[in-house]
Design a protein around this nucleic acid. Structure first.
Length: 302
DNA sequence: GAATTGTGGTACGGGCGGAG
DNA sequence: CTCCGCCCGTACCACAATTC
């Protein structure tokens, strides 16, 4: 399409105005330009089409056959381009899409699930696919569109991603019902006498935010089991005297466990959603992100 | 950062038709 | 015929974007 290299869309607009007005001055007025400017554009059009296009006469500017032949296609082209650049309008209920959401197990459970339920109500032809975020090249997955959005801790964000904070996550301690520790005074000392199950996504780790906090107090705890999934926690805790410290939003609804405020300060983190620049201005993606932000508000203030 | 290029602005000239 | 108004085209300038 080499012939498009020097084509100015404004020239086509001018040609269209000239064809409809058959008068340079009026065409100029319609184009919000001065008459000499449009005259110069007509001159450029004449060179481009190698045709006088309009002949001055006592009845105004008479279009040549070439100009008349251009009228319909030029109008069509301009209408098409105008439709092309018009902002995308979409109705959620008519949207067909598979939304790809990556997150930690906790992120999917606390935000992904209510998000998917809300989407199902608003856009019945939209499917939601969850992806585990661990060990994946986050930026690349978002760049290529394999994922649309990622739910993660703010500390996992990388420089080239757009993000929005969703809520603050804190930590809560949990043990089984009738656990002996419940009869004791709940202090840092009793906490440290317990044995723990720890969730480490990457596997094999036996220390986390809790241990960092304890270290600052000059204390230690015993972590006996390290699991890769939160879903293993409830069964393990119910069968043993082990305790755990896990994100508060994950434990909040577990009636089968007893929840305890940690007897010391454990630094929480900001839960955020992240997306790539390619999705930043997309109105459909913006709509999905707004739904996620709404869901986060509901999670924050149940 | 200077040179180049493209575009639109103002000023103005000239053709043309109509009124007097 | 002359004058006036309308209209188009050209010359020249300013400005912005681009290139080197």
């Amino acid at each position: 399409m080499k012939e498009l290299n020097h084509l100015d869309l404004n020239l086509l607009k001018a040609l269209n105005a000239l064809l409809e007005e058959r008068n340079v001055s009026r065409a100029a007025e319609r184009l919000a330009l001065t008459q000499p400017a449009v005259s110069a554009m007509l001159n450029r059009l004449r060179h481009r089409f190698n045709d006088p296009l309009f002949i001055r006469s006592s009845h105004g500017m008479l279009p040549t056959n070439r100009a008349l032949a251009l009228q319909a296609p030029v109008k069509l082209i301009l209408e098409n381009i105008s439709a092309l650049v018009k902002p995308i309008e979409f109705k959620p209920e008519e949207l067909k899409y598979t939304f790809k959401l990556a997150g930690t197990e906790n992120g999917i459970r606390t935000l992904g699930v209510p998000f998917a339920l809300k989407i199902a109500k608003l856009a019945s032809d939209v499917k939601v696919a969850f992806f585990p975020i661990q060990g994946q090249p986050l930026e690349e997955r978002l760049l290529t569109g394999e994922w649309d959005l990622a739910i993660l801790g703010e500390q996992e964000l990388t420089e080239n991603l757009y993000y929005q904070r969703l809520f603050s996550e804190t930590y809560t301690c949990a043990v089984r019902h009738n656990h002996p520790v419940l009869k004791q005074e709940w202090t840092v000392e009793t906490f440290c006498q317990l044995e723990f199950v720890l969730v480490a996504y990457n596997g094999g780790h036996f220390a986390g935010a809790t241990d960092t906090a304890l270290e600052r107090l000059g204390k230690k705890r015993k972590v006996k089991i390290s699991v890769g999934h939160f879903s293993l926690l409830p069964d393990l805790l119910k069968q043993t005297d082990y305790a755990t410290v896990a994100p508060s939003h994950f434990l909040r609804s577990r009636n089968d466990l007893v929840l305890l405020e940690p007897p010391f300060v454990i630094e929480g983190y900001q839960k955020a959603m992240a997306w790539h620049a390619r999705a930043n201005h997309d109105p459909i993606q913006q709509w999905f992100r707004q739904i996620m932000a709404d869901v986060a508000e509901e999670v924050k203030n149940p």
